[in-house]
Write a protein that binds this DNA or RNA. Structure first.
Lengths: 196, 196
DNA sequence: AATTTACGCTAACATATGTTAGTACAAAAG
DNA sequence: CTTTTGTACTAACATATGTTAGCGTAAATT
């Protein structure tokens, strides 16, 4: 057959990663086979290995791509001179936008990271923990400054992150409200629920 | 080897289902093998088939067990003469309690249902949809009666259900706050975020 | 135009997996 | 005690899976 079609200076490897994210999201990492991936890419399974080292490389590329973006976002938010509530709102909006526009990748990173192999697994978990701590610290700061209700910050982080990852169902649903509307609803409930 | 040990008039099949839920939760349905399950049950893989029909039977037993409990709970809540907010609080408390006390089973039903086979898959999805609709209807009722902020009820349901399923992370975490405290925190944020 | 590189193919591998067949023996029922 | 039933075992199966080896050809480089 012909070669893998690329577009806009993305490499063939990028194409494979993109399709892998879609497949892993749909079937789950373990249930998705390299032969299936090959088929959606339009090539034989063995040919994939001219571009990637292994199936698990695909997973860790996807996961760390997302993790890196989150870290950069956190750096940015922390450096801003805004109120805690504004910071939280910015984080939540960023996460929602990620869920809406980079859905497959974010979803896979969220749900399938446990199939990472060492040392990537430990590394990923550490980043995840660190990132949640930073989020919790912002909330605690807001509580100290009396902008935010007195609640357990760890629980609040947990609620917000998981509520957002629930946008998955929104993707599945037929009677979709639009993305912007979804975002405003979530801000109302999540951020509104914190405000003192 | 010896036989599967049962206790308190639970059948050997029940023991297998329980262990299967633990294993499916830990490894994911696809990644968990019957040989692994056999090992934790303390028996050879082939012996499991004296008690169950197939691996996928295990999954659908787990999923429908949870689904049935949810439906019963919904029936009960709907029949009560309480305010919408009280109904919502009751649902949320029920769900949190389920997450805390029947963790493995609920987790599997939440995350692994997509590996159900037909006709169970369609049936399960239908029940899930119905159950969410009922939940949303309660919220809409509360909005109509001005107990609840004017928000999109579907989004609110989505947020609450996923926030609760995030208790998974609470199970993993070391510095666990206690279950009751977690529950109160979640009620504050989730139900508090709805109140007008 | 000649050479090198990139990339696709077929074939095959080793292993893992769900499941069945057939057998032996312990527990329960009579 | 004898019979029947339940339950565990070993062996084997068919299939699916990730991956590698080796080869040919189109694309890129010189």
């Amino acid at each position: 057959m012909g070669r893998i079609k690329t577009e806009n200076n993305s490499s063939r490897k990028d194409v494979i990663i993109k399709k892998a994210a879609e497949l892993f999201k749909e079937k789950g990492f373990k249930a998705a086979s390299m032969r299936e991936l090959a088929e959606v890419v339009g090539v034989e399974a063995a040919s994939l290995y001219n571009h990637i080292r292994s199936k698990s490389e695909l997973l860790h590329l996807i996961c760390f791509n997302v993790a890196n973006r989150y870290n950069l976002m956190m750096d940015e938010v922390e450096s801003e001179k805004t109120t805690s509530l504004q910071k939280i709102e910015k984080i939540v909006r960023f996460l929602i936008a990620g869920m809406v526009h980079n859905f497959e990748e974010v979803y896979v990173s969220d749900r399938e990271w446990k199939y990472l192999t060492e040392p990537y697994l430990s590394n990923f978990q550490a980043q995840r923990r660190a990132y949640r701590k930073r989020f919790a610290a912002i909330i605690e700061d807001g509580i100290k400054k009396k902008e935010i209700k007195k609640i357990d910050s760890t629980t609040a982080v947990l609620i917000m992150l998981h509520a957002i990852s629930g946008i998955e169902s929104w993707h599945r649903s037929k009677e979709k409200i639009n993305g912007k509307e979804l975002e405003e609803n979530m801000i109302t409930i999540l951020v509104g629920g914190l405000r003192k």
